[in-house]
């Protein structure tokens, strides 16, 4: 007989059930998001105004950490490397598309080939870094081996052991400041291309065959077909691929930590690794300075993230 009760007898919860329910379900996520994401962001912003080694008392220094950053050549090297990462990592998008188009055929065993191409994304970045580190090794890596077969000859050294003598020394990709960053990015592209490929493969499944058919009747083929008929339909996949690639480039850390530790002499540092180095590594523990780097990185990411969010917002309003 509850429905017969006058409204005034209903409890507050019962009256507001509809508006409370979503918040109730959202609250666990909101609480954890606040504790682990939102609050630390503000903590980090405030620590960046202090000089603190984690042991002694923190000293308020205003914006001095940022002034120091401005004068720090290693910061600029890191920032420059971040830009190089961003630009070159973008290659993963067209490369992923190319591989996806190539694999989008009906050939016996195609699933197997697809999974082989996807494989690098499944293995951890740390493993990818290690493997490429070996590839690049001038002494026993594949790069060194090929080089030696061209430019080097085997000789017997003074104690009678086999040694190699080269007319040109093999390139030490990770040990040479000119090549090291590109070497790491190349290694990073391998799994990233696979990721973009899988995004495009799922996108290609949804390309309407009627439109392809219609385009074909109108005489479109090859490049024009791709450009005007297929690509527009792949827009959601492209958008996603660009987003994950930008974020992947900005948070590149594991590869650098594994392959060079930022070396040789800091030439492969990026902001995230430089932050770790100053704030948390053996020679660091300048929490304030590290937080200042983190803040800069945060604002760079914020530019991209707001752009992406704005794009998505526009999409939704149109849709």
């Amino acid at each position: 007989m509850a429905y017969a009760d006058p409204p005034s007898r209903k409890s507050w919860i019962a009256r507001n059930r509809l508006s409370i329910a979503p918040w109730l379900f959202l609250s666990p996520a909101l609480i954890f998001f606040a504790i682990y994401v939102v609050i630390p962001i503000f903590q980090s912003l405030s620590i960046s105004l202090y000089e603190w080694n984690g042991l002694s008392d923190a000293v308020y220094v205003g914006f001095r950490n940022y002034v120091d950053l401005w004068d720090d050549p290693k910061f600029w090297i890191s920032l420059k490397n971040n830009v190089i990462w961003l630009v070159l990592y973008m290659l993963a998008v067209p490369l992923g598309l190319a591989v996806a188009l190539f694999l989008n055929q009906t050939v016996p065993g195609m699933r197997f080939y697809k999974s082989m191409f996807f494989f690098p994304f499944v293995i951890s970045q740390v493993v990818v870094g290690l493997i490429f580190g070996w590839f690049y090794n001038p002494d026993f890596g594949i790069v060194g081996a090929i080089w030696k077969s061209i430019y080097c000859e085997e000789v017997i050294n003074i104690v009678g052991n086999v040694s190699v003598r080269c007319s040109r020394t093999p390139p030490d990709i990770l040990g040479d400041p000119r090549f090291a960053t590109y070497g790491i990015i190349f290694a990073g592209l391998w799994p990233q291309v696979a990721y973009c490929m899988i995004l495009y493969l799922t996108g290609l499944n949804n390309v309407s065959s009627e439109q392809i058919e219609a385009g074909r009747l109108d005489g479109a083929k090859g490049w024009r077909m791709l450009r005007h008929v297929v690509l527009p339909q792949l827009w959601p996949a492209t958008f996603l691929a660009v987003v994950v690639t930008v974020i992947g480039a900005l948070r590149s850390f594991d590869m650098i930590a594994i392959m060079t530790q930022g070396g040789p002499f800091g030439s492969t540092n990026v902001l995230s690794y430089y932050m770790f180095e100053t704030a948390l590594s053996e020679y660091g523990f300048r929490y304030g300075y590290g937080s200042a780097i983190a803040t800069v990185l945060f604002f760079i990411m914020l530019i991209f993230i707001s752009f992406f969010l704005w794009q998505m917002y526009k999409e939704e309003r149109r849709g």
């Binding site: 690049y136 090794n137 001038p138 002494d139 020394t169 093999p170 030490d172 990770l174 040990g175 040479d176 070396g263 040789p264």
Partner: peptide, 14 residues
């Protein structure tokens, strides 16, 4: 030795 920037102290024993 060449390429010392990519070797650890143990690698340099080789």
């Amino acid at each position: 030795v060449e390429n010392h920037t990519s070797m650890s102290w143990q690698d340099a024993i080789a």
